[in-house]
Structure formats: structure tokens, C-alpha cells
Design a protein around this nucleic acid. Sequence first.
DNA 1: GATGAATGAGGTTTCATTCAT
DNA 2: GATGAATGAAACCTCATTCAT
Lengths: 210, 210, 210, 210
Amino acid sequence: MTEQTKENRILDAATLEIAENGYANATMARIAKRANVSSGLIYFYFPKGKLQVLLSITVRFWKILNDRLETQLESISDPVARITEVARLAEFMLVRDNNRLYLAKVLIEELPRMFMINDEELKDTRMEITIQNRKFIHTIDSIIKDGQDQGIFDRDLNPSAVRQVLYGAVEMLLYGLFIKASRNEDLGYGKDDVKYTLDMLIWKFLCKTP
Amino acid sequence: MTEQTKENRILDAATLEIAENGYANATMARIAKRANVSSGLIYFYFPKGKLQVLLSITVRFWKILNDRLETQLESISDPVARITEVARLAEFMLVRDNNRLYLAKVLIEELPRMFMINDEELKDTRMEITIQNRKFIHTIDSIIKDGQDQGIFDRDLNPSAVRQVLYGAVEMLLYGLFIKASRNEDLGYGKDDVKYTLDMLIWKFLCKTP
Amino acid sequence: MTEQTKENRILDAATLEIAENGYANATMARIAKRANVSSGLIYFYFPKGKLQVLLSITVRFWKILNDRLETQLESISDPVARITEVARLAEFMLVRDNNRLYLAKVLIEELPRMFMINDEELKDTRMEITIQNRKFIHTIDSIIKDGQDQGIFDRDLNPSAVRQVLYGAVEMLLYGLFIKASRNEDLGYGKDDVKYTLDMLIWKFLCKTP
Amino acid sequence: MTEQTKENRILDAATLEIAENGYANATMARIAKRANVSSGLIYFYFPKGKLQVLLSITVRFWKILNDRLETQLESISDPVARITEVARLAEFMLVRDNNRLYLAKVLIEELPRMFMINDEELKDTRMEITIQNRKFIHTIDSIIKDGQDQGIFDRDLNPSAVRQVLYGAVEMLLYGLFIKASRNEDLGYGKDDVKYTLDMLIWKFLCKTP
DNA sequence: GATGAATGAGGTTTCATTCAT
DNA sequence: GATGAATGAAACCTCATTCAT
């Protein structure tokens, strides 16, 4: 999918490494080995080290997601269809194959960490995430407000709170799939349940009751 | 709340340290300093080190939550009231004051890490978490199934998927509050919105539509 | 001489290591090995690393020198005798045996580096040097001004410039001795020439011509 | 002054880089950037790397100094005038503008390092320095011996020791000017004091007392 | 001549963990 | 129970140096 530059290979390798060992235990040496580059090259592309690599994984994902959203949503006008499309796309980008689930795991587990970064030297990368994140949030919130204005979505709900609910729902549903895929534990539902549950969440929770 | 033994002081200090720096950057030396004990003493109480401390924070929380749930739910029979009470209690234990929000942050961010632990020596502590976690999951799933059996909750929803949605919704709503409290960023909603949104999630999404 | 605490052992080992390899090539690992301590312990006493070790060598020397000067000069009132005593003491502390010459070499070669340090984190150590240095400069300048006031020293000379000349003269004369001791090269003079030359420098250059 | 070939630009850039960061912290990458060439090119001109660059800075300086000395001294016969000319020329070459002071700093601080070099591969460059250095020393020592023979300079002084004194005096006086120029610290004297003090050093210390 | 991405040896540095007191 | 100086494995990270272009 993404062009196989060495920079991208490093990010892919880091995704795998972090997914398997967690950020705390991921080592630069192993990332380098997985990407089949020297450890020094990682610092050439990401001078601030491991944290910048993690941030860059996130930036790359959000950029692609936002780009695709923009394209996909262009031709859809119905708020229900639009919000459903957002969920579908997130699902598609993170669940389609097991490789994607690694990315899902990293994004879900490490996203909160992003908000905590104060390092002055990483301000730029951090800002990029914030921009992409705000863009995403704005997309969702706009759809919700739009639906409320059109009388389709429940006007009594706070759009920001709804967005958090949707975000959390998608996150935990996907996370369960990851656990299922990577361990023996069954959490009691499958990919089809995710689709159906999210549809119902939109129809019943988000839409105006007749 | 909890008795101020040195052991508890260590866990409290660790919660703060991990909340501020993340598990990866938390150091035993700083935890010791914050707890006003020597670093050697941490190993007296938690011989397996940092990871055991993290696990112990989690165990302590889940034990208390499950205990209280048991007590509180005893006198409630209506499924809607029961599931609402679960949300209320989680909220209460994690949001009541800002100190609690630190705990919320640690639990939310580091919980996934728990599932990755294979360390033979920590099997016992890990098992304790699994037990508490299953107990919690079982409590929720039982309420949902019960409600479905009674024709109050929507029978077409997969109980496990619903549980993930509720868990994710509570998590993200609380997490937004933490961001708000610890940074200037406003996510667009407040404590009251959390209550109302969760109530609506239960009424509209979870309950059977008439 | 100095109490053989581990801290002092580290400074002694570092002096030797830096004298032999230069600051640029000195390694913490070798300093540790020479001091017979673990490399980690160096960071326990000198958290800012190699540069702090270098600064600390200097601080220790200047402190001792200033202390002894204070004691020795107490009982001397004649400006000529006083300034001679300063030169003698510097000589004594740096030349008496070959071990001392190592210290001399480090102090002479690396002193200029001290003035260049801007590192915010080393401000304290750097300030200590500045204080000791000013104390030393003040001692010398006072003697010179005193001698000028008494009509013994040449009043037309700028005391600060004279101090630089004396400092440079002592430095280069001692440095030559180090070269001689550590290599085969002969620079054409010996310890006795140093004494005589410095005496003449004081008598002829510094004193008022009759 | 010097022709702006890329080779010279590299040496100039290295002088600045080493003056600002010290030899230990100077990096080839920054030297290349300052010289506006690629780092690879430095190895084209100086295959032995950083040390060879440092040696080359020194060689270039001493060669020019010795050349000029030869020219300037040709027409002067009086020992006092000759030795004064040496001091003047050194001053001129190192103090005339602030750029020169950077060179002074590097030469003063890093000269001792030269004597420590044993690297077989740098034997040639090192030898060049030794040759230039001996030539310089010989020039001075000759003037002094000459003056002593003519009964103008004090015959009781060891010429080599005198040379060290003069060298140290010039060095420290110039060094003080550098400190003054690059920091706020005032060492209590200026360029005029340097001239006067050196004149007096020659007249009073070096010359025979009547 | 000139470039700069890429390497990897070798240094610095951290910090979990121990143990004598 | 409690301390904190001391250890050393193992990570991070730098940067001199190379080489295909």
C-alpha cells in the first residue's frame, strides 16, 4: 500500500515491534533488524528517537484516514450514511487483515500517550497529530451537528460526547478483535457483530426516536 | 480512603508517577521518592519490580470496584437501574476528584499491557487481575442477558459486543474529562453531559424499542 | 593526601585518564576501571557525565590551592615574598612528583574549556570554579596593587595584565617540565631554571626599577 | 586573506566549529555544513579525518607565521626590535579582528593535543608541525642568544626558559582578549595594555639591567 | 570533484535490582 | 522492616567514515 521507502519500512517494523512488545519494551535495535536497516538510520529519519517513531506511525495513519474520508464522503450526503461510512472506513483500515490489527493495537494503546507529550523538541510532530486529530474530530462533529440540524439525529445529545461514545465503541470493539486474533481468548463476538452493533448504535442511540 | 500503609503509599505514588510519565518512563527511584520510602523497600513489598507494582494498582482497583458492585447491586433488581449503577460506580470511583483521574488514566492506558504479560513469576498477580476482570465482565454480561430475557433490553444485540461498547463509551468519556482537567484543551462536554449521554446510551441503544 | 573516598578515587582516575588520552578520548568506562568502581557509580556522583568530572577535578584543585594560599600568606607581609609564595605553592602542588604533573597537564590543557561551558545543568559546578578562580585572581591582583601602592612594584603596569603574564609564565614553564617528564624531548631547561626564571620575572619585570 | 578554495573553507569552518564546541564536541557534519560542502568532501581533502583537519589548521598558521617572520626580520638587526617584532606579528595574526581570535583560541587550546599524537598515519602532518614549531622556537631562541651575546639581554637567564615565559605571556594575554570578546567578562585590561606589557616584559625582564 | 544516505562500532547513560548495614 | 550506595546489563544514541551515484 504505502511506498516501500526505508522510512516507511522503519515505521512498519516499529508498528510490529510495538504491537508485540509494547512501547516500553520495544527496542531500537529490534526495530532496525525488522526493517532490515541499520539502527543509525532510524535516527537519521527520526532524530528524536523512539517517541518520534511512535508519533510518526500515528501521523501517517491519520493523514491517510483523513485523506480517504475526504474522498469517500464527497459523494454521500445523508448523515446516517456519512457517519456509517466513517465507522466503515476506520474498520476497513484497521481490521481488513491481521497486519492491520497490529496497527490498530498500537494506535489504540498508545494514542493516549500522545496527549501527554510536552517535549519541546517534538512539538512539530505533536502538532501534526493534533492537526490531523482535530480534522478528524471536526469531520465527525460536523456530521453529527448536520444530522441534528436536519432533524435526523437526536438534538438533545451533546455532539462532542456522542463523538467520544462512537470513538470508544469502535475502539473497544476492534480491540476485542485483536485480542481474539492474537490470543486464544474469545470475547464472545466476531466481525459481523461489530458491523451490526455499530449500525444499531447509530440508528438507535444517535438517531431521533420517532 | 485506603489505609496509609507504606505499601499503599507506594501504589499511590506509582499511580501518580505512571500517570505523569507513562509506564515506559516511570522509574522506581522516583516512585520511591514520591512515596517517601527507599527504593529498596519497594522490592520488599513487590519483589518482581515495576510490573508487579502496575499489576497491583490494577488489582487493588478492580477488587474494590467488584466489592462495591456486589454490595450496591444487591438491592437493585431492575436491569436498567443495575446497568446504570455500574456506570455510576465506575464514574464515582474514577472521577470524583482529580486524584482519581490519575488512576483513571493509568487504568485506561496501561490495562492493555496487562494482557501481554507472560512472565511466569507474575502468574499469580496476573491471574488475580484476570479473575477480577472476568468477574466484572460477568457482572455486566449477566445484567445484559437478564434484561434481554426479561424483554427489557434489545434481544438482537450481542451482549458481549454491547459490553465492549459500554466499556469503550465510559472509557472515552472519562478520558476526555482527564484531558480537560490536566490540560487546557476543552473537548466540548462536561461531567453532566457524561451522565446524560450514558443514560441515553442505555435507554436508546440498549433497551428494546417500543 | 585527599581522603580516599570513592568520589576522590574517581577524580584521581579521571585525571590520569584525561592526562594520558586527552579529554576528547577519555572514556567513562576506562575511568571507572582505573578507579575500580562501576561505571554507573560515576553518574551517581557526577550525574552530568564526563564534563562534570572534569569540572570537579578543577574545583577540587582550586579549592585546595586557595585554602593553602590563605594559610601560607597569613604570615607574610612583603609583596615580593607574597607573590613569590604564590608561584612556589602552585609549583609545589603541581610539580613535586610526577603524579602531580598529570594534574598540571589536565588543568593547563582543559582550563580554557571551562570558560566556554554554557550548559544550564552545569551552572552550579561552573559557578564554583568561577568563584574559586575569582578568589585566586583577587589574591594575586591584591598583592600586585599592594606592592604598587607601597612603591615596590612598578606602578605603570596594569595589574591584571601582569597577572596574566605571571599565570602564563608559570603555566608554560610547568608545561615544559611535563613534556620533558613524559616524553624524551628536552625543552632546554630544568626545575631549577623554573625557580630562577620566576624569581627574576618578579624582581626585574614586576618590581620598580631603581 | 587566504584563497577561498573549498579546502580553505573547510579549515575556516573547522576553526569556528572547534572554537565554539571544542575539539571533543566538534563534528564533521557541522564542519561540512558551515563550509557549505558535503561531509564526504572533507575526506577527500583530509583522508585521516578530524584530527588531520585540526593538524592542518595548525600547520597552515605556523607556515604563514614563519614565512612572514622570515620576511619581516630580514631587515631588522637589533635584538630588542627583533623580539618585539615577533610578539607584534603573533599579535597581528591572532588579534586583528574577532575572526582571528577564534583561530587563537583553537591554537592555544588544542596545541597541547598535537604533542600527544602517535598515529602512524598522521606522521607526516605531525612532522610538519614539529618542523614549523622547531623553526619558530629556533627563531626566538636565536634572537635571545644573540642578544645575550651582544650584551643586550641578561646573560643569566636560560634562553629556553625565557622563550617559555614569553610564549606563555603572549598566550595568556591574548586569551584574556578572547574571553573579553566572546563573553561579557572583563579581565581588566585591553589591547593597549597588551602592547605595553609585552614591551615592558622585554625591556625590564629580558634586557640586562644597567 | 562532490554528494549525502547508509552503516555500525563504540561510546554514553540509565535504572532495575541487590545487599551490607 | 528500612536504607541507599553500588553494580552492571542493556538500552540509547552519536557520528566518523564509506560508497554508489
